[in-house]
Simulated scan of single mutants.
Amino acid sequence: MDQWEYKTLKYKTGGFLGGKVNEEEFEDLLNSYGIDGWELISCFDTSVHQGQSRDIIAVMKRRAYLG
């Protein structure tokens, strides 16, 4: 049976009140974890108010190597 390990990343948004995402930087971050075998399984934001995001939470998994 496959066993998995999980990682949760918190990515801070920018801007005076938050809500601005540097898409290239965020994509680079995800790609760097992907190179290490992590797969993105969920991604959501934490709201401040009126639809603005404070953080982006990314949940990743990869096969656990026992040994």
Rank of each mutant, 00 (worst) to 15 (best):
M1A: 13
Q3G: 06
W4N: 01
W4I: 01
W4Y: 11
W4T: 01
E5L: 01
E5I: 01
Y6H: 10
Y6R: 05
Y6C: 09
Y6M: 06
T8E: 06
T8D: 10
L9D: 10
L9Q: 09
K10M: 12
K10A: 13
Y11W: 12
Y11F: 14
Y11G: 07
Y11V: 10
T13L: 13
G14Y: 01
F16H: 08
F16A: 14
F16T: 12
F16S: 07
F16W: 06
L17F: 10
L17S: 08
G18T: 04
G18P: 06
G18F: 03
G18R: 03
G19K: 09
K20V: 14
K20L: 09
V21R: 08
V21W: 01
N22F: 00
E23Y: 01
E23T: 11
E23C: 04
E25P: 12
E25M: 07
E27W: 03
L29A: 08
L30M: 10
L30R: 11
L30P: 11
N31H: 02
N31S: 10
S32K: 02
Y33I: 02
G34D: 03
G34T: 08
G34H: 06
G37L: 04
W38A: 00
W38V: 04
E39G: 02
I41T: 01
I41Q: 00
S42N: 11
S42R: 03
C43M: 15
F44L: 12
F44K: 15
F44C: 14
D45M: 05
S47C: 14
S47Y: 13
S47N: 10
Q50W: 10
Q50S: 13
Q50R: 12
Q50K: 09
S53D: 05
S53R: 07
S53A: 15
R54C: 09
D55Q: 06
I56T: 15
I56V: 15
I57G: 14
I57H: 13
A58Y: 01
A58N: 04
M60D: 04
K61D: 00
R62V: 05
R62M: 06
R63Y: 02
A64F: 04
Y65V: 15
G67W: 07
G67K: 11
